[in-house]
């Protein structure tokens, strides 16, 4: 496996009085797609937010492409080439679809070729180009949130539950988009509850439980080990469908 583009060592995060992350450790290899799995409340979203600097790590170290980003501000981290797609349709409702995408393109206006690539997968965005994003449906908002993160090449994408509430056809398009990104120069860390989606896409896996990483390894091996899945995720056989 290639050298990690992102590595977390002993990361602790506290939110107010609550101690959420207890020494989180895992790597995201360059050019790979790592799935971050775990039950509800395991600390997956907090881990992504801590990487982005939205919650400050109280201890430990986060390194991105060899640089220590633990104490950097969120905009500094973003400008290093990390894009974050938060859970629950994180778009700017008052801005049009076009403005949302232009805003996210930090290296200049979005390239036509890149936009066409996005439109081929999420055609609704082209159709509603000048519509305020608040008027889109839930699925379309989620498409826009993902499109915003991939409107220009990034080194690392952090994606929180991209398939939540999406129709199967759109999920298929999203899998295709992530696969193509992975085959390009982008590394991905994706939080996902949908195990069928996770096993189709992930190279590596990190499973969290109660604010700690309980397992890291290869996705193919993890997908084949029903007992381990049952132990860490509480999954039954139906999750494999």
């Amino acid at each position: 496996m290639s050298a990690p583009i992102l590595s977390l060592r002993g990361v602790e995060t506290r939110i107010g009085r609550y101690h959420i992350l207890h020494g989180v450790e895992f790597d995201v290899p360059e050019g790979g797609l790592t799935m971050l799995l775990g039950r509800n409340g395991a600390g997956k979203t907090t881990t992504l937010r801590t990487i982005m600097g939205l919650w400050r790590a109280s201890a430990g170290e986060i390194r991105f492409a060899g640089r220590d980003i633990t104490r950097m501000s969120t905009p500094e981290i973003a400008m290093l080439g990390i894009a974050y797609v938060p859970e629950s349709m994180a778009i700017f409702a008052d801005l049009t679809v076009r403005e949302n995408l232009v805003l996210a393109a930090r290296q200049g206006p979005p390239e036509r070729k890149r936009l066409e690539w996005i439109f081929a997968r999420f055609s609704a965005l082209e159709r509603f180009w000048h519509l305020p994003a608040g008027h889109l449906s839930g699925g379309q908002k989620q498409m826009l949130a993902v499109a915003r993160a991939i409107v220009e090449p990034r080194r690392l994408l952090l994606v929180d539950e991209p398939t939540k509430g999406l129709a199967p056809a759109i999920v298929a398009n999203m899998i295709e988009a992530f696969r193509e990104l992975k085959d390009g120069a982008t590394s991905l860390l994706v939080v996902e509850q949908n195990f069928a989606f996770a096993r189709r896409l992930g190279n590596g896996v990190a499973v969290m439980d109660d604010g700690r990483v309980a397992h890291t390894g290869d996705m193919a091996q993890f997908a084949a080990d029903d007992a381990l899945q049952q132990h860490l995720l509480g999954l039954g056989m139906d999750a494999h469908q």
Partner: peptide, 9 residues
């Protein structure tokens, strides 16, 4: 926060 996560201070 969302705007900061895109890189705007």
């Amino acid at each position: 926060f969302r705007a900061e996560a895109i890189g705007y201070r």
